[in-house]
Design a protein around this nucleic acid. Structure first.
Lengths: 192, 192
DNA sequence: GTCTATATTTGGATAGAC
DNA sequence: GTCTATCCAAATATAGAC
């Protein structure tokens, strides 16, 4: 008796997810260039051939991971949107961003690495573009918050805030013993 | 009549410098991985074989560029050391760092890209290590300055300052129309 | 749905002539 | 001191069997 359609779908999704997760793990450990298709297939416990059945090679896997990262960033902004007061929204952004890094510093490091890809790179620059744009969206969103907080120059304030926040994220991702809590207090004191 | 020893030395240095410059240009444009030895040789106007006569392949060229970058960072600290008052020193650091990026944003972007290389990368992680250490040295140096400025917690202050400064550098290197002057004023107001 | 075997390409590196 | 020709390894991608 052949497998049911539902069963096949389940298997397909499971295998695809398995490969996707393995790819991300490899990327975080050794980086995009240094991981081979073979590494990913081995970690997922499947053959190279099967991998090509599900993804368009290595770049397809990267594309998926970038989509996931963008969703993660968006989620923080959406959560903040749901709150009433601008100060609460800002607190939520700080907390969301920093706890993501604290939880997975290598993930942030990887995407920052991708984001700082040279612009002329034929294949990879499109992903750094996407991440740059997402950062811009975040800046716009924050500008609106500062506007509601009645600060003098909301756009400038938002840019300065973004700079500080991303600098903190950068150093967190590089230095394992970064004193996140005390620095976070400082940031809140300065901007909220 | 054979060339004199001096003449040979001059030619050697000139060729080596020519290749080194070409490599850096390629790296800035397309990144380390995406540039081939052939690209570098072509841009320098020499053969691949000659390149190997002067450098230990692509990684040797990268090593040299990292040394240059470290020297550049050190130069800012040394210039600051020469000043008397701590506030002047801090101003010099800010000005030195930011004007370097303003002048060559792609350069900073490239080295940040290198610095965020995953730790497990066999060949390249050593260079990110070097850059990380140089960043730490800068932090230590700034701690001493804040100590002389009698701030409450000099180390914490230095870390917070480093975070903001590097965040600004990051955004500068990504967004071409970053309003560097006004942000710089903000930074000076907050820390000096 | 999954595997093995193979074709193809790319690019780093070397040897030897001039 | 410089070049051309060649080798070699690695890794992507595909074809066809089970």
């Amino acid at each position: 008796m052949p497998r049911s359609r539902e069963e096949n779908d389940r298997i397909r999704r499971s295998t695809m997810d398995n490969i996707g997760t393995a790819a991300m793990e490899c990327f975080l450990e050794r980086g995009y260039h240094a991981t081979s298709i073979d590494d990913i297939a081995k970690r997922a416990g499947v053959s190279k051939g099967l991998l090509y059945n599900y993804y368009q090679g290595k770049e397809g896997l990267l594309a998926e991971s970038v989509r996931d990262r963008v969703d993660e960033i968006s989620a923080v902004m959406e959560a903040a949107s749901a709150l009433a007061k601008p100060r609460e929204q800002l607190l939520r952004i700080i907390d969301g961003a920093l706890s993501q890094i604290a939880e997975n510093p290598k993930g942030y490091r990887f995407f920052l690495h991708l984001q700082t890809q040279p612009e002329e790179d034929e294949v990879l620059s499109k992903y750094s573009e996407i991440l740059n744009q997402e950062m811009s969206r975040q800046y716009e969103f924050q500008s609106a918050i500062f506007e509601r907080m009645q600060v003098e120059d909301p756009k400038l304030r938002s840019l300065y805030f973004s700079s500080s926040l991303h600098g903190i994220m950068l150093l967190m991702s590089i230095y394992p013993d970064y004193p996140i809590e005390t620095i976070k207090e400082q940031l809140i004191r300065d901007f909220c």
